[in-house]
Design a protein around this nucleic acid. Sequence first.
DNA 1: TGCAGTCGTTTACGCCGTAAACGGCAGGGC
DNA 2: GCCCTGCCGTTTACGGCGTAAACGACTGCA
Lengths: 268, 268
Amino acid sequence: MPTISEQTSDDVRDPDLVAVQEGPEAAGELTRPAGLDREKILQAAIDFIDEQGLAALTMRRLGSSLGVEAMALYRYVPGREDLLDGVVDRVVETLWDDRDGDDIHIVDHSGWQDYLVRLAHGMRRIALAHPAVFPLVVSRPPAAPWVRPPLRSLRLVESFLGTLREGGFSDQAAVAAYRAYSSFLLGHLLLEVTQIGAQVSLLDQPEGDEQAQQETDMSEYPNLARTESLLGQDRSAAEFEESLENLLDRLERVLHEARNSGGDVGDL
Amino acid sequence: MPTISEQTSDDVRDPDLVAVQEGPEAAGELTRPAGLDREKILQAAIDFIDEQGLAALTMRRLGSSLGVEAMALYRYVPGREDLLDGVVDRVVETLWDDRDGDDIHIVDHSGWQDYLVRLAHGMRRIALAHPAVFPLVVSRPPAAPWVRPPLRSLRLVESFLGTLREGGFSDQAAVAAYRAYSSFLLGHLLLEVTQIGAQVSLLDQPEGDEQAQQETDMSEYPNLARTESLLGQDRSAAEFEESLENLLDRLERVLHEARNSGGDVGDL
DNA sequence: TGCAGTCGTTTACGCCGTAAACGGCAGGGC
DNA sequence: GCCCTGCCGTTTACGGCGTAAACGACTGCA
């Protein structure tokens, strides 16, 4: 049975919780294996998914990774689905984490372009740090269902729209920019983490003898065969930057045209 | 929770192989219970997912939607995972289906731009026809794991690369274009079907009285509140066309620059 | 001392994917 | 006619899943 996980206590207080119980923790841990709480469970779930994949996450296994029976989790989490929602929220939350010397803080930006670049890099950092979790981030329905592109965090959408407004975008242009930006980010990052997953799952099954792999017949696919090495290359980072730059150019063009003409700015 | 009506006959074992329909069946589907085969099973799975969602698809329920026990399916399909792979293949296959007067055939194109536009529209048609299936299309690992952006169909990738080559792209430029195009398509369509799913799942749960919905407090999100109606609007089709056009422009620019300079064309 | 709360465990239920054994029907050689 | 052999759907069974409900053990306060 695994020992208690180390669990760095990065502590983001949830104001919703009235601290009904604040015991003398100083007496602290003698031999207690548990000392469960919601944050600890969510973090354990994230770690578990990172290591074993989403499909492997069951309540029983997550429980036992915490040294506890499955049913113990239900005191802190309503059920498996809500657990996954919590995982998504916690992962996205790290967008606002302080990063020592990094350029990631998405508050304290200068200009909307800077904001969009930081946000994109922050999201990409999350995606690469938790490739197996990221599909959850984009596939779960958003907190407010009427927000069409579901980035799930209302706080995030709010700050996005606010920043663009400050940058001179009309409401319509800001919303259009939000959607274009979301779909760009979603496409690139999902592709990237899917590739990572594919690589990993390859290493999973090196069964059979080395030679006899069922090498699909490539003679029907000459272009594929010829470019095989190119297709296998990983240019994700560069392509990400290039596409991001292209998107920013496009938005900037729209914004200036709108300013000069003062006309309708809904379209991108 | 929609209950699937069990149709196990009460007491008498049905003596006929052909399993005579007992006339007034329980208002069920028009399922011929006889004559299972792999294609029939895959189509039933697609229909099932379209109607009930991916999560609801179980071997037992799929079997009973075909008037058959779950284990019967295993004679034609190795297991649930392979069933899902088959579903993806079958759905993507419809890209090549003849469409009466439509512009969808992705063979018989004129020029690579035309090809990319047709392919995009074809994929979008698939996504919108089967919004609940589409996430499978992009999330399952590709047939050849070394093809980085996993569109799953080698045939598709092959024809893509071939067409761009004919259009004057170098191998590197074609591969770069393939990736840019994939991530654009993936992002846009996944966003779109997620939205559709979100709407549907909204209609699922009109529980509680009409007024008392737990309307999250919007006072903290002024920009969201103000643009609520804009965010709710559906401009997917127009945005799709605009982004597609932008991508084509970008590719064309790259191609011409490469031609005129004759230099390295790997970058986009 | 007792009492009430908190928290993890035990037990149980129905559903899941699927391995394995089973049985009824078809057709073909005798 | 017979039996043999495949085919094909059913039955049975097993371990694992999410989770409802009952059950202790422990803790702090009256």
